[in-house]
Design a protein around this nucleic acid. Structure first.
Lengths: 355, 355
DNA sequence: CTTGCTTTCGAAACCGCTTTCGGAAATACT
DNA sequence: AGTATTTCCGAAAGCGGTTTCGAAAGCAAG
């Protein structure tokens, strides 16, 4: 029972040759319908499954795709990888394919990882996330004609397949929302802009600021790491300004958590004295003090979607046909509110959210 | 450049036969040191790497291990999988092995997944997590002589390799801590006890309760899902008791977040009116209201540790030699405190202490 | 009853590497 | 010098499939 039957045994059992049985199983047209059915029935009955390794060697297709772990995948800053992996695995499993998850070793850079992946012939497709603005990995994959999809986009994204959330307009929406609440000095907590999503969101922020007729103030944008500590640190910097912001817009919820902490340590209450808005919509945000208002991205089935995309591209689809852009939406919890003015006491209730 | 050199070309280049070159590369003793070095130098120079698929077919070793995603891997309840995967991948990569991450398809149960994995011969080892008390998957792996390590333990854990945190004594410590703060009625928010870790932690709770001379009250232990909503729901149930608990001990931090929410919705302040303690030590707990006191497990290098373990077992080590138990430690933040007594203030009319 | 196509399958090469086996050359032992 | 060992490498048989090629059989047409 433990020892699976192989092709030789199956074909002996059927009185056919190995090649014939193989072709029957793979629905070659040069096998009569009658024997084709006979073979498939027998295979079913005997529990025959072709040895994947042998098939891979013979056909040259790896029947696996690799997911590249984002650089900081081991921090709190990646709350999504688990659910993304689940969806991706599910999509691939429907075809019986494997999901490798790989990661640059400490000594290795991301490009070497891609090169190694390509030349190893271990996978027939790659999904990578968090591309840089100009991402060398993408060029490598294109040159090697290795099918791939990107979770996120680089600067020049017209030529490949990607799945992304329109975080630029999300940040514009967030700014509009804050402006509608009366905020004019809105701080931006960002990340190094070689991350394209960091650039995109900053662009959204800036564009909305000028659209709303507010003057850009570079003191109000701070760059830091994608961690709560990073957010906390630069939140302090922002609040230390002579003319501090009345609202803080953060690149990620994780950073926003740090911003909340900064406010608390100063005796400021978020949503009242200073508004804080994050981005991602992580569920944890319901439990902060106060619950974090955030631009929530629809993470529902991103993994499955990415899986389906890479599969069709491997099947020959034009990658350019697979570019999907989702929208993020404002989830108002309690960390935003109208601009704080000294003599204001009762108008808060108007902004309290029910539920 | 894109087309890697294969063994035939390399051996032709060297004027040797393929078998000889292969043995030279694999350090067979029947190849003279001189030609061995010559071959390895040439391989290096020409960038030759043995085709993994071919090697796998020839040797029968898969050079890959599978990580089984826990059932609810896509929920908030699994904050660790990303960092665990990172460590595991790193450990495997040092040997050039692949990490497959697999998951039962919706239609399939966990045992079928294991069977499929075994008979597919795609991996030479398995790491699985969150075993049930009596976990059929473990028996399957043992019967098939498939090397494996378990993250956590089942009831009978003497015969295989595992990495676990001593959550029983962690919960005993937590109870002792609460008792020292004056608590006598301590609620327990748990999960279905087919999860062995749920049973273990409940055991720790119960044992410490009696050790402290407190009478067990089954009304005080509530079973629910491993989510914040689950924790919130049963926290309400506990607080609705005639004689409600003054402290809530939760199986996981995630559940504890829900418990905090339940307290808030009742106008109770955690750490003052009711103490809440979680387990896991997720970083996010620093940002709840108030910051969550928790039993923190040392998650630092669990992934790498698991990887190293499975590798040595595949190499022939006795699995029983690889059983490591780590300790969790109390991280006191702000959600615990001494028992609330009414005369500390008068405002909480509804919250009166009987007895 | 040939001739000419199709249909259907067997034979064999191949994918790229590993490993056993045996033999020639080199070295050791009497 | 002759025999017995070693040392070192070539030859070949797998590993378990896939796929091309060609031949035998079946059938229609002439």
């Amino acid at each position: 029972m433990t020892t699976r039957i192989n092709l030789k045994q199956l074909s002996a059992h059927l009185g056919l040759t190995e090649g014939t049985v193989s072709r029957a199983l793979n629905n070659y047209p040069d096998i009569s319908m009658k024997t084709r059915e006979r073979v498939q029935k027998a295979a079913q009955a005997l529990g025959y499954k072709a040895n994947p390794t042998a098939r891979r060697l013979a056909t040259g297709v790896a029947e696996a795709v690799a997911y590249i772990m984002p650089e900081n995948g081991n921090t709190i800053s990646e709350p999504f990888v688990a659910s993304l992996l689940a969806g991706l695995a599910e999509s691939l499993a429907r075809r019986g394919w494997d999901m490798h998850v790989v990661q640059a070793s400490p000594a290795e850079n991301e490009e070497d990882l891609i090169k190694r992946l390509i030349s190893s012939h271990k996978v027939s497709g790659v999904v990578l996330s968090r591309p840089h603005k100009k991402d060398a990995r993408i060029k490598l994959l294109q040159d090697a004609k290795m099918p791939f999809v990107v979770h996120g986009r680089s600067l020049e994204s017209s030529g490949y397949a990607w799945y992304d959330v329109d975080s630029k307009s999300a940040f514009m929406d967030a700014v509009d929302h804050l402006v509608a609440l009366g905020h004019q000095r809105i701080g931006f907590i960002g990340a190094p802009t070689y991350h394209n999503f960091a650039q995109t969101r900053l662009d959204g922020y800036r564009e909305a600021i000028v659209t709303n007729g507010i003057e850009l103030d570079n003191d109000l944008v701070q760059i830091t790491e994608l961690t709560d500590d990073g957010g906390e640190r630069v939140a302090h910097d922002l609040l230390d300004l002579e003319n501090p912001p009345t609202a803080l817009l953060c690149l990620t919820d994780t950073q926003a958590f740090g911003a909340l902490a900064a406010l608390h340590s100063r005796g400021l209450v978020p949503g009242k004295h200073v508004s804080v808005i994050g981005y991602d919509g992580v569920r944890f945000g319901r439990h902060t003090n106060p619950p974090l208002t955030t631009m929530a991205q629809p993470q529902a089935h991103s993994g499955r979607q990415l899986g389906d995309m890479i599969l069709s591209i491997i099947d020959g689809d034009d990658p350019k046909k697979h570019q999907v852009l989702r929208r993020a939406e404002l989830v108002r919890r309690k960390s935003d509110g109208p601009v704080w003015t000294e003599n204001q006491t009762q108008s808060m209730s108007k902004w309290e959210r029910e539920e």
